[in-house]
Design a protein around this nucleic acid. Sequence first.
DNA 1: AAAAACATGCAATTGAAGTGCATTATTCCA
DNA 2: TGGAATAATGCACTTCAATTGCATGTTTTT
Lengths: 139, 139
Amino acid sequence: MSEIESVLKKHQIRPTAIRILVYKFLRKREVAVTLNDLEADFDRSERTTLYRTIKTFEKNGLVHQIDDGTGVSKYALDDKVAESGQPQDLHLHFHCDTCQETVCLTDHKIPHISLPPGFVSKDINLVIKGICDKCSNLE
Amino acid sequence: MSEIESVLKKHQIRPTAIRILVYKFLRKREVAVTLNDLEADFDRSERTTLYRTIKTFEKNGLVHQIDDGTGVSKYALDDKVAESGQPQDLHLHFHCDTCQETVCLTDHKIPHISLPPGFVSKDINLVIKGICDKCSNLE
DNA sequence: AAAAACATGCAATTGAAGTGCATTATTCCA
DNA sequence: TGGAATAATGCACTTCAATTGCATGTTTTT
């Protein structure tokens, strides 16, 4: 059994052909991908199948969904999870206004933010927009 | 001329009947509103007109758009701007999973976040999800 | 008062997300 | 093993927010 298959199985995901391909695709990309990105790379496959594939990955904690404010959902592998089995720590996302790419800054933990009395925090979404390292070097 | 009219004019917005009503509506609400909220309160008026009204307000710095991750855009008055003419400071938004309302925690400034070399920050979107003060008191 | 600029209303389009259902593939277990 | 049960896939279709085009109505300007 390949390494990829065992990663999927560890997450209770049946390693079908498409799922393995989608997983490989996510691995290959360092940036978060949209459903359209997937579709563009998988002419042979159905949008719905890709949609459900990514949703299955998400449900089983293999990817996380990113809302970067562009109005289109993006997804990225929870690499740490894939290896350790521990849920991915909260981290921030950076969206580049130039190349439109969104990346996980996995090493940048979100600082603790105190809330007014009565507010209970369960989840945090932090997206920073600007110019990414690749694009700023091109200027 | 009413106070509202002068606020609109200060922002180069012609104070038409609908615009004044929309502004009043935004004032009345302490939470961010969706287009649907507006529409529900303005049977007489057209969705498109409300849409364009809010977009005009946004373009002229009277409201800011909030993406709280629900997939529906919300809008809230830039109160400070309305008074001072200065752009609203970056602040965080809180979305309550219970009542589904989103509020601006205007007094909570977003802490400085250092980025890796090459990344330039232009804008920050920080949304915290959980239970708001009203809903946590009800438990 | 006429022309120009802007606001409004209605119809229609777009695009992402999601659902229903029939078909195909895989797993389970007698 | 073979057939029932379960899950995955493909296709069509729906939903819903966002947005645009265009005709009409209203202000503003001169």
